[in-house]
Design a protein around this nucleic acid. Structure first.
Lengths: 138, 138
DNA sequence: CATCGTGTTGCAAGTGATTTGCATTTAACA
DNA sequence: TGTTAAATGCAAATCACTTGCAACACGATG
């Protein structure tokens, strides 16, 4: 596991428990954002017994520490992906099969300033997701 | 109510029932996106009794017909707003008080083409929401 | 290495949003 | 006005997520 992750946990007064390591291992092995239920299922497949509540608690905590990013795709559930070692990016999801693909771009740096001027808000984040049809489902 | 809405309902084989009219009236009177529960509450305040399930069924149907747009702000519930008579736009929500402000801009026309080239998906829509702190909460 | 204090976990129960089955009603149109 | 498909109310169910609490496990310290 990356030192930066361990450092962040320590800085946040968090412990590096075995269940937590297992969750982080799953997250790090996944290129695409996963749901709590998916994390739970993959742990089970790896013969790691863990309560779903523990998965949720950890995902929430990791998000608060800024170690994972939430990804909302209007699915009725949240997805999460590790931030460590990856560029800030967005996603596109197929309306047919649900397949998710990373978009290695973010056009919103300039726009953020415009939004701040326009609204007087201090912008802290944004979500940008695309929906469409993948080549197979088209 | 706008003719275009009535036409769309008819084209979709939908009826213009009284409950449905009441829901559309609420939606049209709201500049900002509302939740199903909010619609239900405003109906109640206007002494219109209606089951929450009916509200949900109508919002889903109106979304399928493209008459309302879903707005996901990571609140654990969906919001909806009428599309009729309004420019395509996005939102910003305050992390402090939850206040939502319309952003009358969308920088994504060019980007959509880039995404299509990059992924071979046929892009059909996108969600773009900002989060931050409003002047009062800062 | 034993101890202690705080963070963590499992389990079970609880929420809150959204959906569904079904009997009854209603809009649209012949 | 009769017919029929769509729509509604009601109650129950589902689903994602959260919470209370007792037992447990890091990791700092002696």
């Amino acid at each position: 596991m990356a030192d930066s992750i361990i450092d962040s946990l320590k800085a946040g007064g968090k412990k590096l428990t075995k269940p937590r390591q297992a969750i982080l291992a799953i997250l790090e092995s996944n290129a695409l954002p996963v749901t709590a239920a998916e994390v739970h299922a993959r742990l089970k497949k790896a013969h790691v017994h863990m309560d779903l509540a523990t998965v949720y608690r950890n995902l929430t905590m990791l998000q608060e520490l800024g170690l994972v990013d939430p990804v909302g795709l209007r699915e009725g559930q949240m997805r999460y992906e590790v931030r460590h070692g990856r560029e800030h990016h967005h996603h596109i999801q197929c309306r047919g099969c649900g397949r998710i693909v990373d978009l290695m771009l973010c056009p919103l740096k300039k726009l953020t300033q415009l939004v701040e001027t326009q609204t007087k808000f201090a912008v802290e984040g944004h979500s940008l997701e695309f929906f469409g049809w993948c080549p197979q489902c088209r």
